[in-house]
Design a protein around this nucleic acid. Structure first.
Lengths: 252, 252
DNA sequence: GCTTGCGGCTGACGTAACGTCAGCCAATAC
DNA sequence: GTATTGGCTGACGTTACGTCAGCCGCAAGC
């Protein structure tokens, strides 16, 4: 029976000698035997098996899965079906990623003059871009795009008034808190309602309960936001968040 | 100045403690200082940096690249643009892979329901039965039945003529190739069209461009197929594959 | 007989980004 | 005094090999 040495198999198939040794080491492709000095010798059956391995590998399957298929422990069609599903998921993930990266680039390039620097009050352009990326991954592109349109539709006056409006909310909330009001109390909820309406205006669409609560969580979780609130009053972000949660539960 | 312990940062950001230690170990995020017992302490600056790290990481950048960007050694926009290109390439690769996998699955299905041992040597009756049961539960009866109906709609003569029909294609292609014809030439494309119609008949449905190309790739990649072609003429599979690609591009 | 070269061999380390122990330490709570 | 909390520092495992380093057997040339 004809046999082939490692070097010959390398020439025939294009795989590297190291790969053959690796497949031997993990038991995926055991040589037919060993010649003088322990030299590996492959027979026809091993070459055929190697061809199958390479085919399945080209399809992106993992070596352990390939081994299970070739040894009959796994159904080939079922394994490929699962693999196809994984490929589709991965592709979708990449699509989403690519969109977010593109948005980030556009933002960094400043080609989009959407939110003036005043928007996030104190955040530099770089941080702003990060926030847009975060917003897109949190709420989706549609929401952020709508927000951009809404902001552009505002007059310059309205736009420049944004930070002051937020500051006004924050100060009123801090005052209520100092007075001992709970987040769910009517006075606080009134301010929160104004806040909600204002966000709706900024976003160009009415936030859902989840989105609004998510925004509240962002206020406390994001150190940049949190710091902005802390400047007005310690832990004000958490106070507002509770107010937003209560508002969302009661009205959205 | 306010500082946070590892556990606090974990709660604030959602990353694991192990990750924070890892980032410290590779120098990506060094704590502001160490408290009693070597406990890590993070300040506002570190939280902001961590925030940036997490955003870039969500965009799929590698940690060493992130470090270079944050330390100013790399231009952020340029790095993201390169990254976007890589994402697009990876996506395309997955597209291609998915199409090939789908075609392979179809072909394996065809192996079992449509063309018996005469065309493909390799699956015994038991394996075939398992595959069919698997196929029915996974793809639904409709698809498998359609294929079987298509086969059954053939007369016994037609069925037994399947291998001969393929062989006829192969011989005609080999002859054209010997005569110097390119895969895209009209004469070859005419044979390929017959081949396409025949596959359509066997599958019970018209292959898409991707599926048809995937089948061509399978002819060259699968050793069982390739060997069948090689018996007629050396590297005939690759020749047919090119013809199939040209046909798909022009007509599907 | 000795060296050189070829072809191959067996470890062993490195890769990306951590997860998952194992074993130890310090401060606090009971 | 001890259990608990919260943290610490190694070190191994993960995937599919690439890349040495060091050694061995066999042949040809000197």
């Amino acid at each position: 029976m004809q046999t082939w040495s490692t070097a010959e198999v390398v020439k025939l198939t294009g795989v590297t000698a190291r790969t053959l040794r690796h497949y031997d080491a993990i038991g995926l492709l055991t040589p037919a035997g060993h010649g003088h000095g322990g030299l590996r010798r492959y027979g026809r059956a091993e070459l055929l098996r190697l061809q199958q391995i390479l085919l399945l590998k080209r399809l992106g399957l993992r070596l352990d899965v390939i081994a299970e298929i070739l040894d009959g422990a796994l159904d080939e069609i079922a394994a490929l079906e699962r693999h196809a599903i994984q490929l589709a998921e991965e592709r979708e993930r990449l699509d989403h990623l690519a969109a977010t990266v593109e948005a980030t680039i556009r933002q960094l390039e400043g080609k989009q003059t959407m939110t003036p620097e005043t928007w996030f009050d104190g955040l530099d352009a770089d941080t702003q871009a990060r926030h847009e990326a975060e917003a897109r991954s949190r709420w989706g592109d549609a929401v952020v795009d709508a927000g951009e349109r809404a902001i552009r539709a505002m007059s310059a006056e309205e736009r420049s008034a944004i930070p002051a409006t937020f500051e006004d909310f924050h100060r009123r909330l801090a005052a209520l808190r100092d007075a001992g009001a709970e987040p769910a109390d009517a006075g606080v909820q009134e301010v929160v309602e104004h806040h909600y309406r204002f966000i709706e205006k900024l976003w160009g669409t009415a936030p859902t309960a989840e989105a609004y609560k998510g925004l509240g969580a962002l206020y406390t979780d994001d150190p940049a936001f949190n710091a902005t609130f802390d400047e007005v009053q310690q832990d004000l972000a958490a106070y507002l968040r509770e107010g937003m949660n209560a508002y969302a539960d009661a009205n959205l």
